[in-house]
């Protein structure tokens, strides 16, 4: 990635190490993942060890150290969704896309992620595809939703 972008983000927070979390969030928002050279640059600019930046980037679920797909499909694994069958949805997508939750297809088109509740429990089970919420999902509905981005089994 363009390291000047990293510099701008760090400068926005006056180079304060306390802002490490928001800095990484901003980079992730811009790049969709955290490239290695970006983490090194953050460490250098903030004058903190890379170990601290790396620890932070691997601790929080919001961050990905690998490039993510063009389309991101998130299955809510909150309790309400769980009792309404969310695990079956994850298994189905894993089966159809031949990836595990947390992984991206080799063509970098599709990433499957899970989240521990987004607080839209009335709609459970719930799938979020590229930011759009799809509620009360069944396996048939899921096929339809995924067809929308040209992905079917």
């Amino acid at each position: 990635m363009d390291l000047a972008k990293v510099d701008r983000i760090v400068d926005k927070y006056q180079g304060s190490p306390a802002a490490l979390l928001p800095i990484l969030q901003d980079i992730q928002a811009q790049e969709n993942w955290l490239p290695r050279e970006a983490l090194q640059r953050v460490a250098d600019k903030l004058q903190v060890p890379l170990t601290r930046v790396y620890g932070m980037a691997t601790f929080f679920r919001a961050f990905s150290l690998k490039p993510r797909g063009k389309h991101i499909c998130t299955v809510c694994m909150g309790t309400a969704c769980h009792v309404r069958g969310a695990p079956k949805l994850v298994e189905k997508i894993e089966r159809d896309m031949k990836i595990r939750a947390g992984e991206t297809t080799p063509d970098l088109e599709f990433t499957l992620e899970t989240v521990n509740c987004v607080g839209a429990c009335a709609l459970g089970p719930l799938v979020i595809l590229d930011g759009t919420y799809h509620g009360n999902i069944t396996s048939a509905k899921l096929d339809k939703v995924l067809k929308g981005i040209g992905r079917t089994k």
Binding site: R36, L39, P49, L50, T51, R52, V53, Y54, G55, T58, F59
Partner: peptide, 25 residues
């Protein structure tokens, strides 16, 4: 020297170096 990192969390937590690579620090 700050060469050792704690990575990830929960049951995935590990003591390692960044990216499991030789750390020049």
């Amino acid at each position: 020297a700050n060469a050792i990192a704690m990575s990830a969390r929960g049951t995935a937590k590990r003591m390692t170096t960044p990216y499991d690579a030789e750390n020049p620090a």
